[in-house]
Amino acid sequence: MNILPLRVALAQVNVTVGDLEGNTNKILTAMQQAYAAGAHIVCLPELALAGYPPEDLLLKPGFVAANLGKLHHLVSESRHMPELTTVVGFVDRDHDIYNAAAVINAGKLVGIYHKHYLPNYGVFDENRYFQAGRKAPIFMINDVHVGVNICEDIWYPSGPMTMQAHAGAEVILNINGSPYYAGKGTFREEMLATRAADNGVIVVYLNMVGGQDELVFDGGSMVFNEQGTLIARAKQFEEDMLIVDLDSASVFRSRLHDPAPPPGTPARGF
């Protein structure tokens, strides 16, 4: 049983679409800062390597390849920070392309998550580019079960996050490129609190920050404990590194104290 907190760093960075070199350096700097702060995990935003949204750059095989090259550079650099696990958004290629999160540790690409829900409304066009993922892996990081997913995945009560929570995840890392509109912050906060409480998991919500053409990413990354209480929030509209210590043991305790079956579980006794 883990009694030490899991220290998670939320690197709320301002990346630039297409600036693979600059974004990679920014990500590396964030990894080093998180490492120096004693974090077990550092999260970086959705498609942080490529910048979000990369739009039709995604139709250029050279761009996808260059983004993968940079990912391998990050993986190689991670050997200097062996106790740190990095979760970072990139464009994965496997016959087709995916909006993906890489899980990197000690010089290895430990796992890859592919986004399930591809938004295609409002300003979003993700079906134009990406295939949808189907798996929802859980990573054991310092004895804590951690589920990784991306942005839209957490907006659906029956999405991969619920699969991960039901399979034993105590912490969910949800990385985002979520554009601002007036009032969205409150909407997000209520949704995330509900998701955390309903599934009895700690939710780490990381957003990017910065302007990209007409979009503004507002940051305001947040962490909710398994009871749905906000326990940390980063600055809005500014780069920030939010470091939070998570009590994963409390998730198990809460589940013992509130033995309500998770949503979607068939009723017993019939």
Binding site: V103, V110, A136, P137, M140, N142, Q164
Partner: peptide, 16 residues
């Protein structure tokens, strides 16, 4: 509870 859709992957990290 690991399944095809929810594989569990261990990340080796040192004791902190």
């Amino acid at each position: 509870m690991a399944s095809d859709d929810v594989p569990i992957i261990s990340v080796a990290t040192r004791d902190y």
